[in-house]
Simulated assay, not measured.
Amino acid sequence: MSRFSEYIGSQFGNPRGIVGKCCCIIMNIINKAMYRKVVSNIHLNEQAKVLDIGYGNGYLVEQLYKRYQANIFGIDISEDMKKSANKRNQRGVDGGKIHLSIGDCCYLNYENEFFDVVTSINTIYFWNDTLKGLKEIFRTLKSGGVFYNVVYTKVWLQQLSYTQKGFQFFEQEDFIEFGKQVGFTEITIQDIVKGKSFMVVYKK
């Protein structure tokens, strides 16, 4: 694995600087089917509370707010992405409906049963502790709440040069087992692009 590939892979896990901004724009383009899948499956009202894990440049936050005007929260480890996402969603931020913060999804600073919906697109590969992150999501979801976890398949990820370091790889069965371990009562998987990407829907 070249140093350049390793550097690019690290940018997908923690976007920063000009290269990080460019990587996020690329992700917005190549992940459009994933964003559409999430937005079309979610049903919210203006009082609902949503958490987006790894909001990046705020693309999904923007889409959800435009459609539902709900209360959108976000957590990301990149200070640079917080600045970009806040700028992109300035209207919602100024209106008190969008709240973006820096942090780790394994340590969510929210009360129990706070969110109606939690979303994550291509972040779970980078979590320090997969089960702990899922436990935190479960804790902060209301009864009946849903976590939409959107990912690429293990086979597809493993063929990319920049994923050979810093990425964790999971099979569909792993996501189901993790969800059962933390207490989710209903877990379903929906294909986005057959053999390439899918969405795991966890219902509390």
Rank of each mutant, 00 (worst) to 15 (best):
V155S: 11
T188C: 07
L141K: 12
T119I: 07
S161F: 14
I189W: 10
S161G: 05
W156N: 01
T185C: 05
G145T: 08
G166Q: 05
F138P: 02
G179N: 10
I124Q: 02
Y162S: 04
V182L: 05
Q164K: 15
K132A: 13
N128I: 06
Q164E: 02
T153C: 04
E186R: 15
V155W: 10
K132Q: 13
S120C: 14
G144V: 09
V151S: 09
T123D: 00
L160R: 15
S120W: 07
V150Q: 01
V155G: 03
K132F: 07
V118E: 03
K142W: 09
L134N: 07
Q181C: 09
T119E: 02
T185H: 13
D116I: 08
L131Q: 10
K135E: 11
G166H: 11
T130E: 02
V150T: 15
I137F: 00
G179Y: 12
L131I: 13
F169S: 01
E171L: 13
Q190H: 14
F170L: 02
F184W: 09
S120F: 08
L160Q: 14
E136P: 09
G179K: 11
I187Y: 14
T130P: 02
Q181S: 12
W156F: 14
D129T: 07
I137W: 00
I124E: 00
I137P: 00
E186Y: 13
F138Q: 08
R139V: 08
E136D: 06
I137V: 15
T119F: 10
S161R: 15
L160A: 06
L134D: 01
F178M: 05
Y125L: 02
